[in-house]
């Protein structure tokens, strides 16, 4: 059994009784004969940042999807953002592949989500500027570089201001400026009282940005 308690609270050793933003209790997930997650227990409170590492096929991405409430589990209890009326709307998931419509421009991809969330278009422009995408925002996603596509994904996550931010290999293929965008996104989320989970195969990255690391 893997059990990690991670209060993610502020430094200083103050004991606080908090409702965790994410609570996984003895979570098991199997796809047929394939055991993907085996008895995982973890707790994540506001302001926390947890890293998840493991070899290929160890279930890192699946664990993120479980926490995003996108993947039902075979056994165990999953509680995510229990105090929110609509938890899914407070979750931001940035996968290792950008979730963009190739025939829309980078700006239109953001505007689409902003429209669905009733986010003003001025916020879209502000986010594009903050992520350095303004000069290329009118470019179609299928004509944008991999780095631009990743930045757009990150920009969208920033735009949505999630309480729970789930990042799957966020630093892959990014230049220094884009790495700074990811770092700011993590910091802003934590400062707002949210929580972050970062999946990475790079221990150095996890050591830099997270407080604790789970190994699958």
């Amino acid at each position: 059994m893997l059990a990690v308690g991670c209060d993610g609270g502020h430094a200083g050793g103050i004991l606080r009784l908090v409702q965790p933003l994410v609570q996984l209790d003895n979570v098991t997930l199997a796809f047929g004969a394939n055991q993907v997650l085996d008895d995982v227990t973890l707790s994540l409170s506001d302001g926390g940042c947890v890293g998840v590492q493991g070899p290929n096929g160890s279930g890192k991405t699946t664990l993120l999807r479980v926490m995003a409430t996108l993947q039902p589990v075979t056994a165990g209890l999953v509680t995510v953002l229990p105090l929110e009326e609509n938890p899914r709307q407070e979750i931001g998931l940035v996968g290792h592949r950008a979730a963009l419509n190739d025939l829309l421009t980078l700006r239109e991809n953001l505007e689409f989500i902003a429209a669905l969330r009733a986010i003003p278009s001025r916020d879209v422009e502000r986010t594009l500027a903050a992520t350095g995408l303004s000069p290329v925002a009118s470019r179609r996603a299928d004509r944008a570089s991999q780095g631009m596509r990743r930045r757009t994904d990150l920009a969208r996550a920033s735009l949505m201001n999630p309480k729970l931010l789930l990042l799957d290999e966020p630093y892959n293929g990014l230049d220094d400026a884009a790495i700074g965008i990811v770092d700011r996104l993590i910091t802003n989320t934590r400062d707002r009282g949210g929580a972050v989970v970062v999946v990475s195969h790079d221990p150095a990255v996890l050591a830099r940005v997270t407080q604790r690391v789970i190994s699958l």
């Binding site: 999807r65 995003a68 996108l70 899914r88 709307q89 979750i91 931001g92 998931l93 996968g95 979730a99 963009l100 419509n101 989500i113 669905l116 969330r117 949505m160």
Partner: peptide, 8 residues
């Protein structure tokens, strides 16, 4: 994209 729609 489907995951994004589910969350949005």
């Amino acid at each position: 994209e489907r995951d994004l729609m589910r969350l949005t």
